[in-house]
Design a protein around this nucleic acid. Sequence first.
DNA 1: TAAAGTGAGTTCACCTACTGAACTCACTGG
DNA 2: CCAGTGAGTTCAGTAGGTGAACTCACTTTA
Lengths: 152, 152
Amino acid sequence: MKRARFADDVCPIARTTDLMGDRWTPLVMREFLVGPRRFDQLQERLGVSRATLSQRLDRLVAEQFLTTVQYQDNPPRHEYVLTDRGLAFWNVLAAMWQFGEDWLFGEFGPKVALEDRETGRRVRVAVVNADTGEPIDLLSVRVGRSKTLPRG
Amino acid sequence: MKRARFADDVCPIARTTDLMGDRWTPLVMREFLVGPRRFDQLQERLGVSRATLSQRLDRLVAEQFLTTVQYQDNPPRHEYVLTDRGLAFWNVLAAMWQFGEDWLFGEFGPKVALEDRETGRRVRVAVVNADTGEPIDLLSVRVGRSKTLPRG
DNA sequence: TAAAGTGAGTTCACCTACTGAACTCACTGG
DNA sequence: CCAGTGAGTTCAGTAGGTGAACTCACTTTA
């Protein structure tokens, strides 16, 4: 039997899971926090097998989270960079970061922290209602039928 | 060879990935958006194999994302409910929801939407800097060394 | 009293997918 | 001509996911 696929599911969480729901893809995406990355660099930093990394990168490029950019012609060499879509995925990673920080470390918290690139001040991530700015409370939302408006 | 494990990684994203980085766990967690759930109900709704579901639920209980609550004594029957930690994970699911909605549907967007449970108004999710309320921009943050303060 | 149903799994044999190590291939620099 | 480099592919072995069938304790229906 084939493994389950959710790319055509009606649920946005399911579609996101289809793309990112494995042990490596979120970590590959994380690596681009600091800028473009190359194959060997990713492989060494993550400790993932080369075959798996190759497959993940192919998928991320096919799904337009990453593109390749040639940085040298002879011999042809490229690096991977985030697209708009890949950049937008940072929202999910940021939420994962804050969740991990809050709930998955012991008494003293993690040894690394997000900081503002300019001021160096600690950044805490909040997931909020975009209109009110209030935290999104699981108990205050429900799933409803959407009016399907074409996008601007 | 054993599969990679990130539960002790220094990176909060890696730890979150260790727990949620598979094709089923996020969807299992999603199911609790509407309240407690039972085994057969989850199995039928998700279409996951019973063995896999059983394993996932065991892990989620062991890691204190879910607890079991007896709803009948004879024969003993329980349902699964979110703990505080499980509830907090909604932040990540909300970010995944919004990302999926924005980037993984075609021109017309998904047929389902998050709405306020009371007003029925459409809810859009934003991931922001908790202090400023500004969107978290990948380009505006970096990873730094944390001052390890004990938690309040 | 017997049979069927229910909830929550476990077991099974099969198959998919991840693993490290080694290999490839095109090109460069010494 | 030889070693090095970047970006992979190939390989055999193994971990983990699959549907279908089974278990087990208790209840309901006939």
